[in-house]
Design a protein around this nucleic acid. Structure first.
Length: 594
RNA sequence: GGAGGCGUAGUGUAGUGGUUAACACACCGGUCUGUCACACCGGAAAUCGCGGGUUCGAUCCCCGUCGCCUCCGCCA
């Protein structure tokens, strides 16, 4: 290789001793009679200054160098004169005077510039991901990710956990997301599935008596993607035996706090606040409330009782609710915006969106002066009660949704986040909390049956067991989600460790005994051989690191991510395969995309 | 499955029913001894994503298609 590195570029210090740096040509500045070359490695950049009079051979070579060539420089470090110090550079007080240089590899002009001056299109970046990753900010993200996982391993190791790998070739199970399938050559017509999570394996490890398991586990879900969703992603997967929900939450809370501190210096509140699912839905209209937004939904049905306005009266008579959200500054919204909000509220299931703009007639202290198409349907005392209940003031807008409680909640929950964006209402950061007491089951109208909110192995609350057969919607789950700034970053539960309870749950899900036996027989069987009470949690590693890195997309914290169409522009995956490969797998492709 | 946005030199953008398709950075050549976003002079570089239609004429208008981004549905 010739010259061998003795020091990282970013750590070159004034010394008068000889060093050798190796890396990429970050920039050249040729002044004719003086040449500057910035050499970059993973640690940073250092300036090399070449004087043709002092070192003509070196100058002859170095003046040929172009951006992104890989080179090495051996020479003396010297301090720059005070006037030439660059305070923006860690090594800005020194420079290298080369005695010998070497070129390891030349580079064609790059397909895009790495300086970040222009936002390059995602496809181009991904097609040349190995160049994109030369950007210091992306490398910093990957290092932060490493620090996070290193802290997780250290923390869990110290707590007696064992890191265990589980299979990625496993079986498809009903419920949950669409599986990625892998054809089984040895078994024509059969398929492996890539795991959506190691859920069943970690339960089996508990039955096996490992007691404390974790894994930095890759998971796959073949669903449509988003900025915060990739087809393959990573969970910090944890499971413990002989524990209750409190034990798991305490462990996870300490772990996340420590890892956030170690990776990014972020301090989470201690202890994290708790909120039940029901409270979160009523107050924030979401099961993952963003506590940075200082707005809450309020119940106003009682203030409107006896109203003549059918848009409120009918839902109330039908057992529904009327709820309101105050939006500070919302009186400035245009009719066009209000119409668009109404349309979106309808799109989300609301019958309509009632709005009241307060104090818009110019009255100095008269917030009851409201502008609204339906104000005339409300008695003056009702309008006053509405303003009083919501804490409305001149300049605010009040939005009301009437209907079934879940619809009113989710529509206003959406509106709350919209208002936070529109009026920049978010305050603070890292507002984490636990959301608990989720319902175990929810009605799936399409399937015509109940489905598991979390997954079908989540334990019902013991007090609610009797409701399972008759009123399944009222059964609470021993489940908990970790939410940070409106993003779900982890979720877990106490699992069912009783074979009979597990069977009852499958029955509540309308899984036939035959299907249960076929697909989950192994689990039921395992549960019959002395299963410990157990539970765990899975933390979304990518999302946590994304937030810690301040990134907007998971792609910025994954080395080789996929596009929104689940493709990889670098390798061309997914790709067609040879006919022979299909034959071996007993498959026929019925569609060919060119 | 649905909605919206984008696609023009290597990159990022501008632009127009008839133009020599513009600008910046990058690239190439030259000048320059203190730059670090070096500066200055010059140059090369475009199938205006692809296919079809309208038109005397389409990069521009219309339809389709592909790709990328964002959102809804979906994601136990």
């Amino acid at each position: 290789m010739g010259l061998r590195r003795t020091v990282w570029c970013g750590e070159v210090q004034a010394s008068g001793v000889e060093v050798t740096v190796a890396g990429w040509v970050d920039a050249t500045r040729d002044h004719g009679g003086l040449l500057f070359v910035d050499v970059r490695d993973r640690s940073g950049v250092v300036q090399v200054v070449v004087d043709p009079g002092a070192a003509p051979e070196v100058w002859e070579q170095a003046r040929q160098w172009r951006g992104e060539w890989t080179v090495a420089v051996r020479g003396l470090v010297r301090e720059r004169s005070a006037a030439n110090v660059n305070p923006k550079l860690a090594t800005g007080a020194v420079e290298i005077v080369p005695a010998e240089v070497a070129v390891y590899g030349r580079a064609r002009p790059l397909p895009f510039q790495l300086d970040g001056a222009a936002a390059v299109e995602e496809t181009t970046r991904l097609r040349y991901r190995y160049l994109d990753l030369r950007r210091p900010d992306l490398q910093a993200n990957l290092r932060m990710r490493h620090r996070f996982t290193a802290a997780v391993r250290a923390h869990l190791d110290a707590a007696g956990f064992v890191e265990i790998e589980t299979p990625t070739l496993t079986r498809s199970t009903p419920e949950g997301a669409r599986d990625y399938l892998v054809p089984a050559r040895m078994a024509p017509g059969r398929f492996f599935a890539l795991p959506q999570s190691p859920q069943l394996y970690k339960q089996l490890l508990m039955i096996a008596g490992l007691e404390r398991y974790y894994q930095i586990a890759r998971c796959w879900r073949d669903e449509d993607l988003r900025a915060d969703r990739q087809p393959e992603f990573t969970q910090v997967d944890i499971e413990l035996s002989f524990v209750e929900a409190e034990d798991v939450m305490a462990l996870a809370e300490g772990l996340v706090r420590e890892a956030c501190r170690a990776a990014a210096g972020v301090e989470l509140q201690a202890p994290l606040p708790r909120m039940t699912y029901g409270e979160a839905m009523v107050r924030f209209g979401s099961d993952r409330p963003d506590l940075r937004v200082p707005l809450e939904i309020v119940e106003v049905g009682a203030d409107l009782s006896g109203t003549a306005f059918q848009g409120f009266a009918q839902p109330l008579a039908a057992g529904g609710v009327v709820r309101a959200l105050r939006v500070p500054g919302g009186a400035a919204l245009t009719r066009r915006e209000l119409d668009a909000l109404t349309a979106e509220a309808r799109n989300r299931g609301a019958a309509g969106l009632a709005w009241f703009l307060l104090g818009t007639e110019g009255e100095p202290a008269g917030p009851v002066a409201m502008r609204s198409p339906i104000a005339k349907f409300l008695a003056p005392e009702q309008r006053a009660a509405l303003v009083e209940r919501t804490g409305g003031a001149a300049g605010d807008a009040l939005f009301l949704v009437a209907g079934p409680a879940p619809v009113a909640a989710t529509v206003l929950g959406w509106l709350r986040l919209w208002a936070a964006d529109r009026f920049e209402l978010r305050r603070g950061a890292w507002r984490a909390l636990w959301v608990t007491d989720f319902p175990l089951l929810e009605w799936d109208a399409d399937a015509g049956r109940f489905v598991a909110v979390h997954h079908p192995f989540t334990a019902p609350h013991p007090d609610d067991l009797a409701l399972l057969a008759g009123e399944p919607a009222r059964v609470r789950a021993l489940a908990y989600d970790l939410v940070v700034d409106g993003t779900e970053v982890g979720g877990g539960s106490i699992r069912i460790h009783d074979r009979e309870v597990q069977s009852r749950l499958f029955a509540a899900l309308r899984l036939s005994p035959e299907e249960t036996a076929d697909k989950f027989g192994f689990l039921l069987e395992a549960l019959s051989y002395g299963a410990p009470p157990h539970g765990g949690i899975a933390l979304g590693l990518d999302r946590l690191v994304m937030m810690l890195a301040g990134a907007d997309s998971l792609r910025d914290v994954i080395a080789f991510p996929k596009t929104a169409q689940a493709g990889d522009p670098l390798t061309g995956a997914p790709a067609a395969v040879a006919e022979r490969q299909l034959r071996e797998l007993h498959l026929r492709a019925d569609a060919v995309r060119t």
